[in-house]
């Protein structure tokens, strides 16, 4: 996938690109509004990550310009401003998603995959990984064509891990993904453990290979 990262903070931009490239994506970068305008004019992308506060302009203007040109590129706004109004404005201008800093790279990656999936596969939204088939729209999981039933949270976790194949996802990121902003409950890390344990058991029982690997208590990796 071809992704444009528009972000003026150098380190963050570099980390995002490194993470996404390791997943096999092609990344382009822009650190100013002018640079971003130039790149979007020349090339099209599967997904554009758009920081709203750029040194020389407002990201929302760029978004409006893209939509005026009827571009089909997916756009995810990444911003430090958690403003309801801006969020609504961004989404109504045609952004596909809105991610507030700070975020986990695994979360960003999952959102990008979701946006690209929605844009590429019209209607049917099925992620296949070996014997696993996940219908994200219908919220159904099949192992070797056989339905298995997962709770809502288990399903969300599975989609999240599959979107970050071969990456270690920290428990912190997993908790945030499931419980959102309110992930500060004392024992939330234990629940991630419980959920993943249950998820693993259900998958293995259905004949799926155990793709989950624990990483020193920090997190988990979903890999071959």
């Amino acid at each position: 996938m071809k992704i444009l990262v528009i972000e003026d903070e150098h380190t963050l931009r570099a980390n995002i690109i490194e993470y996404l490239m390791a997943e096999g994506n092609v990344c382009d970068q822009a650190k100013t509004f002018a640079e971003a305008a130039q790149k979007t004019a020349l090339y099209s992308y599967d997904c554009i990550l758009l920081d709203l506060t750029l040194p020389d302009g407002d990201g929302l203007t760029l978004l409006a310009d893209l939509k005026k040109m009827e571009r089909k590129d997916g756009v995810i706004i990444i911003t430090a401003r958690n403003s309801v109004d801006q969020r609504i404005e961004g989404l109504s201008l045609g952004a596909d998603d809105y991610l507030i800093k700070p975020f986990h790279l695994s979360e960003l990656s999952a959102r990008i995959m979701a946006v690209i999936r929605r844009r590429t596969f019209n209607g049917s939204d099925v992620v296949v990984f070996n014997e696993l088939a996940i219908d994200v729209q219908a919220k159904e999981v099949k192992v070797n064509g056989k339905d298995i039933s997962l709770t809502r949270k288990e399903f969300d976790l599975l989609v999240y891990f599959v979107a970050n194949k071969a990456k270690v996802i920290s428990k912190s990121a997993a908790v945030t993904h499931i419980w959102g902003d309110h992930a500060d409950m004392a024992d939330s890390f234990d629940f991630i453990y419980t959920h993943i344990k249950n998820l693993r058991k259900k998958l293995v029982d259905a004949g799926c290979k155990d793709y989950f690997h624990s990483v020193y208590g920090v997190g988990y990796k979903f890999a071959e």
Binding site: E9, L12, I16, Y19, A80, P102, V168
Partner: peptide
């Protein structure tokens, strides 16, 4: 707000180190 970006950097660095 200004703190959010550095925190985002720290977070992304941690995510990278984890890999």
């Amino acid at each position: 707000h200004e703190m959010m970006t550095p925190i985002a950097v720290i977070n992304s660095k941690l995510d990278m180190m984890l890999q």
